[in-house]
Nucleic acid binder design. Structure first.
Lengths: 183, 183
DNA sequence: GCCCCCAATATGACCGGTCGTCTCAAAGAT
DNA sequence: ATCTTTGAGACGACCGGTCATATTGGGGGC
């Protein structure tokens, strides 16, 4: 039962964000009675923390460390994976959702959002650094800064895609990132 | 009275986003009775539309067209202005706030958010194009794409700054944008 | 095998609070 | 006196969390 609740929480936090995903909606989707929720999670916030961890595990960050694929290629595939996993122009990334809605009110969630972004940027930075040592990514970039910038650009791209209801934002992200910024 | 409500709306939508800025909070800050709200605005959403227009007017987009300042410099100043206008690491841009919270539920607001971003990107693109014709911005960039990317990167930077509670995100935005992407 | 007891878990109605919106009596204007 | 505007508080919906009651499972005794 706990697992069903967690799964539904992941889905709804992803589709609607924190506030618009009510505990009742989550338990309804999980097919369990609302009162049972608090036998498994101390609070909605506590569920969100676990949901965020779970979501982060599905982002396949390991792909960014796969030495059998050249760095630029694996970065490209990484972002293509993230893009292809998106529900259709609805809220696209739990980190971004919580980052926009919750970090001002929940210190535990803010720390996890921050930590998740840092981890992601570290993986990207390692790939940038390897690309530089192989001469396929421009040498003048600071890997940590470039990686940080890419996480920002990606989250912003998700916002724009949602407002535009168009995939053009992603096309532009790929074109500018791989043909201009990293090249 | 209408003006006080509008002003308070702008402030609170900026500081807290749409959902966390209650009508009561807005009227409290405006110093007017809550029941009067609907004598001046049809709904909270209607206020948000007007507040967004008002906010957009204060972003000084005209600075981006000021031919007496070189393109790169005026872009830099533009983003410096936006950064310096921020309340301390709280929600930083009404377009981004509404983009994250509301565009899935309110078509009028989605259109205004989209339109505001498009207008902003057009101004940036014109500056990029001029910089290219003067040889100060790299020629291989598509001005519209670069401008679109910058709006994304900026909005994402705001998200990261909030989660990090640090100005480092802005430092990185400036370093990568002006020393790597545009150079 | 059956019954009883107890602890753990499940459950749905309830609670108090917040929220956007509306109503209608009172106040103001003519 | 009549008409228009105002605004306090009611309204119904929604929300996270609580809790009295019901159910279940395991252990022990006969």
């Amino acid at each position: 039962m706990r697992e069903e609740i967690l799964e539904s929480g992941v889905q709804l936090f992803l589709e609607r964000g924190f506030n618009a995903a009510a505990v009742k909606d989550i338990t309804d989707r999980a097919g369990v009675p609302k009162g049972s929720f608090y036998n498994h999670f101390e609070s909605k916030e506590a569920l969100a923390e676990v949901a965020l961890e779970r979501y982060g595990e599905t982002r396949r960050m390991g792909d960014l460390a796969d030495r059998s694929v050249p760095p630029v290629e694996r970065m490209r595939r990484h972002f293509e994976f993230l893009r292809d996993e998106l529900p259709e122009f609805t809220k696209g990334c739990m980190y971004g959702n919580f980052g926009a809605e919750v970090v001002d009110h929940s210190e535990p969630l803010r720390k996890r959002v921050k930590g998740g972004w840092e981890y992601w940027a570290d993986q990207l930075a390692a790939a940038v650094a390897q690309g530089q040592s192989e001469g396929t990514i421009r040498a003048s970039l600071d890997p940590q800064q470039a990686a940080y910038y890419l996480t920002s650009a990606w989250e912003g791209t998700l916002l724009r895609a949602r407002a535009d209801k168009s995939a053009e934002a992603f096309e532009i992200f790929f074109a500018v990132t791989f043909d201009a910024l990293l090249a």
